[in-house]
Simulated scan of single mutants.
Amino acid sequence: MTSLAPPAVGVRTPWEALPTTVRAAVADMLGAPVARAVTQTGGFSPGVAARVTTAGGRRAFVKAVSAEVNPVSPGMHREEARNAAALPPDVPAPRFLGSYDDGTWVALVFEDVAGRQPTVPWRESELALVLDAVGKLSRTLTPAPFDAPTVVESLAEAFRGWQQVIDEGDEGDEGGDGAVLDPWTVSHLPHLAELAASWTGLADGDTLAHCDLRADNILLTEDGRVVFVDWPHARRGAAPWFDLLLMLPSVRAQGGPDPEEVFAAHPLGRDAESDAVTATLAGFAGFMIRNCRQPPPPGLPTLRAFQRAQGEAALEWLRKRLG
């Protein structure tokens, strides 16, 4: 399968556009002013995302955003600051160095990980490394190492996408990115909504889930490590297989293998209860399909097309599971 999803990119704010107060706060955290900043293009944040080097030679990764760029992003950065500070040291994530928050601008500073995102379309060898790391991540985060909102609390409404499409009465209308529901989906909407409604009682557990694993949130290092970045959506109370399920549609959408085959062969997937997987997948597919039909958020022009590709891959997987 060829790569279908567009690159996961937002409209980045350059480092030089940061207010002087923000740059000064970063300099205080790093012990010297930033002498060089290289913007990173992967990921959907519309704010600053830069690898920086200070005048003293120290390297770090800085992300910063203001409510003027996107009203939702500062809240996500604040959540990520709390989550990153609470992650245990044995979790393969960048070390959190500090944050700045003046009520408008929020900046986070992490150690710089000398790595790169996986190649897309996905390469078999790199996917094997990541799949193994996802299994280890789930084991490391079970039981959940810190208190966070639960998966069910956070996603119950979002995973009602099929019912929302029914309630909105726009089954045949073009969505925000031109997406039109296919005839099979339209005819099965009531069943999909009913199926998705049952996921909340089936996908709970004692694992802390990242909840947003995609190629642009993963770094591969030269020494073979897999590092998971961007933790604003981390939620507790998930089944051990939850992250694997949410990740595989994006893998498929970016040229990867059949998600059912990958899931069934993975230790986390083999231990999963079939009805729980199908219901959760129905909820996730509805979330992505309904979202991709909305107007794009400020500063995120490719988000809806990426969600559409994920949603279509999830729906294709779901149809296979439903026979």
Rank of each mutant, 00 (worst) to 15 (best):
A128W: 07
G115H: 00
H77M: 15
A107M: 12
G175C: 13
P94M: 04
D112R: 08
A93H: 01
P118F: 12
L155K: 10
V69Y: 03
L155E: 11
H77A: 09
A107K: 10
D170S: 09
P89E: 14
T104C: 07
G161E: 04
A114V: 04
K136G: 10
V152A: 13
Q117T: 07
D167N: 03
G161N: 05
W162Q: 10
L87D: 02
A133V: 12
V106H: 02
L97C: 08
F110N: 11
F146P: 01
R116S: 14
P74A: 02
F146L: 08
G135D: 06
V69P: 00
G176R: 03
I166A: 06
V91K: 12
D112S: 04
L97T: 10
E126S: 14
S99T: 06
S66F: 13
E174K: 11
T119H: 12
E174P: 01
E174Y: 05
D112T: 01
S73K: 05
D170F: 02
G98H: 06
L137C: 08
V130Q: 03
Q164C: 04
V151Q: 02
E153C: 07
G103Y: 07
V109C: 08
V180S: 05
G115I: 11
V69H: 09
S66L: 13
N70P: 09
P89Y: 09
R82N: 08
L108P: 00
E68K: 13
G161P: 02
S66V: 12
D90A: 11
W122D: 10
E68M: 13
S125D: 15
P143T: 04
P121V: 03
T140S: 14
D173A: 15
V69R: 12
A86N: 14
V130T: 11
P71N: 07
D102G: 07
A64M: 07
F110G: 05
R78K: 14
S99F: 02
E124P: 01
E111L: 13
A107D: 09
F159I: 01
L155G: 02
G178S: 04
D132C: 11
T119K: 03
A133H: 05
A133M: 05
W162I: 14
S99G: 08
A67N: 05
D101K: 07
P92K: 02
M76D: 14
L129N: 04
A85I: 12
R116H: 14
A179G: 03
L137F: 10
E80P: 04
T119I: 12
